[in-house]
């Protein structure tokens, strides 16, 4: 493995609790180097899953958090100045393609559509990345795989992937784990008792029933972990749930009242 990407190797096993066949599915997809799309609401474990898979497959993982202002050069690289003149610097995507890493574009819909089209030649049979400014075509390393994450929720009103982009990927659906698993995850991540974790999961389940009926998105597993950690450190459960769960997800007063009702129902 090339020294440049070695730093991206994940050394210790990340905690991941599978809730279905996703590990096997991903392994098979990687075997074919199929570009993968992980779909699911925020905070349900997509990024953790990629880390876990990179660790399992012993491949370096280069993560790029996409945003609106990201341009194609932020991904592929650009010429920079140094005392001797201009030098080319590979971007994260080019590094992954050249030296064989898993490149993970987190929340790809956040990037503008003219940025995302640069992955098109990489994600079909050609597996090449043309660097037009440099006049080079990079052929993908055999280990390279592209993984993107994508939240098909309310974001899709303003932002959506083009069909031509979507159809280049295999996809795995993610959702919050079932209550039993979710409680185990929260208990493990925040080092709290299973009972507290189960109550938090109960609150989250009620908020998820309000998705599309007031809430854009239910309370995520990540939020539960935060709240659980606050409770572990001695904060009152009511306060912790408000701080980490109900206040961040909405500004609507009526919803706050209802969500507080759920917290009260679980924590006597």
């Amino acid at each position: 493995m090339h020294g440049i990407v070695e730093q991206y190797l994940i050394k210790t096993e990340p905690y991941y609790c599978p809730s279905g066949k996703e590990i096997d599915l991903f392994k098979s997809a990687y075997h074919l180097r199929l570009p993968m799309m992980l779909k699911g609401p925020t905070g349900c474990g997509k990024t953790r899953f990629v880390e876990y898979m990179a660790w399992l497959l012993k491949k370096p993982l280069i993560t790029v958090a996409c945003n609106e202002d990201m341009t194609a050069s932020d991904l592929v690289g650009r010429y920079l100045l140094d005392p001797s003149g201009t030098v080319w610097h590979d971007g994260p995507l080019t590094t992954a393609v050249r030296y064989g890493a898993i490149c993970y574009l987190d929340e790809i819909v956040e990037a503008r559509q003219d940025t995302t089209v640069i992955i098109h030649p990489l994600t079909d049979a050609r597996r090449i990345l043309p660097l037009d400014k440099k006049g080079e075509i990079v052929h993908a390393h055999p280990d390279f795989q592209l993984v993107v994450s994508y939240n098909p929720g309310y974001q899709s009103i303003s932002k959506d992937l083009k069909q031509s982009t979507k159809q280049r990927f295999g996809a795995i659906d993610f959702y919050y784990p079932d209550p039993e698993h979710e409680a185990t995850i929260v208990a493990h991540e925040a080092s709290v008792g299973h009972e507290v974790a189960a109550k938090l999961v109960g609150i989250a389940a009620k908020s998820r029933a309000l998705k599309g009926r007031g809430l854009e998105e239910g309370i995520s597993t990540r939020m539960l972990v935060y709240a659980a950690a606050l409770i572990r450190d001695g904060m009152r459960a009511m306060d912790a749930c408000r701080l980490a769960m109900t206040r961040p997800i909405t500004d609507d007063e009526a919803l706050h009242k209802a969500l507080d009702g759920f917290i009260e129902a679980h924590f006597a």
């Binding site: 389940a205 009620k206 908020s207 029933a209 309000l210 009926r213 007031g214 007063e253 009526a254 919803l255 706050h256 009242k257 209802a258 969500l259 009702g261 759920f262 129902a265």
Partner: peptide, 12 residues
């Protein structure tokens, strides 16, 4: 409004 949310959430 809050009650409607509360009812939907609690009943699932």
């Amino acid at each position: 409004a809050p009650l409607q949310f509360y009812a939907n959430g609690l009943a699932g």
